[in-house]
């Protein structure tokens, strides 16, 4: 499993600020993508890579906060860092509620920004990795037959093969075969491993 290099996205309508931010981030070895407007950012085809989003609050046409709302709608889950020239408390509250991880007043210390960005990127990397694992598990889950999914669900509830066979009206031996196939398909080494995967995938018995 290979980690993608994180990307920092910067959206600011002021070209000189945008350019200086890009340089600063690049000097800290981040990959940087810059956009002079929110719409431009929305049109961009994102790589499947972890990253974070630096947004200027006040921009013509579409403000940073509005962009944040739209991204939530699109399930693009980058951590968002707001920068603003004249932030207000209501504005920052709104931004934080919507999931922003920080709200920086211009001018800010480069260290502050870089720290926040690093943290954001790190957080996002983990999330991105978890997401990627889950995605893989789901892909595997797709390979299971409906009978195997049923067996998995019942196994995750902690039922014995005998009980599962009884429930499904089949033999214990058959259940064993299904179970082995499930474990193989889901790449689970042990029963505990299988239960954890089932947990991640959100497969739970609806209760005995």
């Amino acid at each position: 499993m290979k980690d993608e290099k994180p990307v920092v996205y910067v959206v600011d309508d002021d070209p000189s600020v945008l350019k200086s931010l890009e340089r600063l981030l690049r000097s800290a070895s981040f990959d940087v993508e810059t956009f002079s407007s929110a719409l431009e950012f929305l049109d961009f085809h994102h790589r499947d890579a972890p990253g974070c989003l630096i947004l200027d609050v006040k921009m013509p046409e579409l403000s940073g906060l509005e962009l944040q709302e739209r991204l939530t709608g699109r399930d693009i889950a980058f951590p968002v860092i707001f920068i603003t020239g004249h932030g207000t408390i209501p504005m920052s509250v709104q931004a934080m509620k919507a999931g922003a991880i920080d709200f920086l007043q211009k001018p800010f210390l480069d260290k502050d920004l870089l720290d926040i960005v690093s943290r954001a990127v790190a957080t996002n990397l983990q999330e991105w990795q978890a997401q990627r694992e889950l995605r893989k598990l789901r892909e595997r889950l797709e390979t299971l037959t409906p009978r195997e999914v049923e067996v998995l669900r019942l196994v995750a509830t902690g039922m014995l093969n005998k009980q599962i066979a009884f429930d499904l009206g089949t033999s214990e031996k058959t259940i064993k075969v299904h179970r082995a196939r499930v474990m193989e398909k889901l790449n689970a080494a042990s029963l505990a491993d299988l239960v954890r995967v089932a947990d991640k995938l959100g497969i739970r018995s609806s209760g005995g």
Partner: peptide, 28 residues
């Protein structure tokens, strides 16, 4: 005032970022 603060903040921010970036580049 807010507008003017913004007007001044923008170049100041840019200057700061640029300067920091330059420092980092130079220390490479």
């Amino acid at each position: 005032a807010t507008s003017l603060a913004h007007e001044i903040n923008q170049p100041l921010t840019a200057i700061r970022c640029n300067a920091e970036a330059a420092q980092r580049f130079l220390s490479g």
